Amino acid sequence: MIAIDVSEVSDERSLHLLLMRELRFPECYGMNWDAITGLVSIPEHVRFLGWDQLAAGVPRGAAMLRRALDDYQVAYRPQFVAEYA
């Protein structure tokens, strides 16, 4: 399990950069939500800390990330777990 603190993220670009760093996405990561579904490797269990702050400050980014991870789970890894704390 990997924990990622998203409480200080202020915009979608910062969110993508944080994901890229913490999840060790390749440099070719396109920093778009479609790239998450199948184009990158994600640990089996990810916990996002400070989710309420992210959802309040960057609502579109939070919603898009959650949807991308839901799609990733359905399409590629049913055992994948994402927690939003």
Rank of each mutant, 00 (worst) to 15 (best):
N32F: 06
Y29F: 15
E12R: 05
I36Y: 04
M20W: 09
R13M: 14
G30A: 13
G38C: 01
R24D: 15
L18C: 05
F25V: 07
L17E: 15
E12T: 08
G30L: 08
F25K: 04
L17D: 14
R24Y: 12
P26F: 03
P26C: 01
S14L: 14
E8I: 09
R13V: 13
R24S: 13
S10V: 10
R13A: 14
V9C: 04
D11Q: 03
V9N: 04
M31S: 08
M31T: 10
F25C: 05
L23D: 09
W33P: 01
I36Q: 00
C28S: 14
D34P: 00
F25D: 03
E22I: 02
L18T: 09
R24C: 14
L23S: 10
D34S: 10
G38H: 01
R24W: 06
A35L: 00
E12S: 10
I36C: 00
L18H: 09
E27R: 12
P26S: 11
A35Q: 06
A35M: 02
V9T: 14
L15S: 04
P26I: 03
I36S: 00
A35C: 11
R24L: 12
P26W: 04
G30P: 00
E12D: 11
R24A: 12
M31G: 02
L17N: 02
G38R: 00
R24I: 11
C28A: 13
M31K: 08
D34V: 00
R24Q: 15
L17M: 11
H16Q: 09
E12W: 01
S14N: 10
L19R: 03
G30D: 09
